[in-house]
């Protein structure tokens, strides 16, 4: 009732206007604003940091080992004498890129498979879902370690591998969202008209489940970021000397008691990015009218 008047005066909007609308709704709440600000800050930093990084990230200088923060080295130096500030602002680049593309892969295969299973149902659905369940029961980190040690830690391996392991959850969300609309008469109507499954997925189902899947994908992104950093921490993510938060934490953790600065900077970088993504995803969900607090999708 509240919106009835606005709805009747509403004019059709271009898709760009719709996106801007959603973003302005997200930013209208403090939590959404903070989340968006952190996310935008991180993304801009990752894109622009190579141009203003004060030092060479791989320049080893034994005379500058473990210097405390100073006006010369803002965040101090690490055990090899490298500038922690330089390495911190550069450290999110690889993680962000790999997990971003990983999430897109996860979204694509997870979303499409989930919708397909929800649509066709029956035996195919049963079989696919049991396979997904079986994969869900494997500790992902062990499986990742196995893949990485067999195929190497290149980007070409990491992106699809992460995309695969984080897409399993999206399959379930997409399938549940599809089940919500599948019983509606407009799907029955499309079936009775004789549309192909692909056409029904694309035209009828996707517009109705898109929002739920996108929100889930955004949440998966933050999880994947944490997962990727864990891999780096264990030495299976980015290979040195490429700066990476997980790797930095791993290298400096033994010296934490007297060189806290070398650990604190990457930790703040990683956790602020994850918090930023989480807050943004929540605000995104609310802006789209999906309330994650009352309705768990899985």
């Amino acid at each position: 009732m509240e919106n009835s008047k606005n709805i009747f005066n509403e004019n059709p909007k271009s898709s760009l206007a719709k996106v801007l609308d959603i973003i302005s709704t997200m930013a209208s709440k403090p939590s959404g604003f903070i989340g968006l600000a952190i996310l935008i800050f991180h993304v801009t930093l990752a894109i622009t940091s190579p141009w203003f990084a004060p030092y060479d990230y791989k320049a080893i200088n034994p005379t500058l080992m473990l210097n405390a923060p100073s006006s010369e080295f803002w965040f101090g130096t690490d055990s090899l004498g490298r500038d922690v500030f330089t390495r911190t602002i550069l450290g999110g680049r690889t993680a962000l890129t790999i997990t971003f593309f990983g999430s897109i892969i996860a979204l694509l295969w997870g979303g499409l498979l989930g919708i397909f299973c929800g649509l066709v149902g029956g035996r195919i659905d049963d079989i696919v879902m049991r396979i997904v369940d079986a994969f869900l029961s494997i500790p992902w980190i062990l499986a990742m370690l196995l893949i990485v040690s067999l195929l190497g830690t290149t980007t070409e391996v990491l992106i699809p591998a992460l995309g695969f392991f984080y897409g399993k959850g999206i399959v379930r969300v997409a399938r549940a969202a599809t089940h919500d609309v599948i019983a509606k008469d407009f799907i029955v109507s499309a079936k009775a008209r004789g549309h192909s499954n692909l056409s029904i997925i694309w035209n009828e189902i996707l517009p109705n489940v898109r929002d739920a899947i996108l929100v889930e994908g955004a949440m998966r992104w933050s999880w994947m970021l944490l997962g990727f950093s864990s891999l780096s921490f264990l030495g299976f993510g980015v290979s040195p000397p490429t700066p990476d938060w997980g790797l930095m934490i791993s290298n400096a953790r033994g010296l934490m008691s007297f060189a806290w600065w070398a650990v604190i900077a990457p930790i703040v970088g990683l956790s602020s990015l994850i918090i930023g993504i989480n807050l943004t995803a929540d605000a995104f969900a609310k802006a789209l009218g999906i309330d994650r607090s009352t309705k768990a999708p899985v």
């Binding site: 008469d185 407009f186 029955v188 517009p207 109705n208």
Partner: peptide, 15 residues
């Protein structure tokens, strides 16, 4: 062709 009981359900809300 079919026409359904409830147009709220038979028309895709996102179309």
């Amino acid at each position: 062709q079919l026409i359904f009981q409830n147009p709220d359900e038979s028309l895709n809300p996102n179309h």
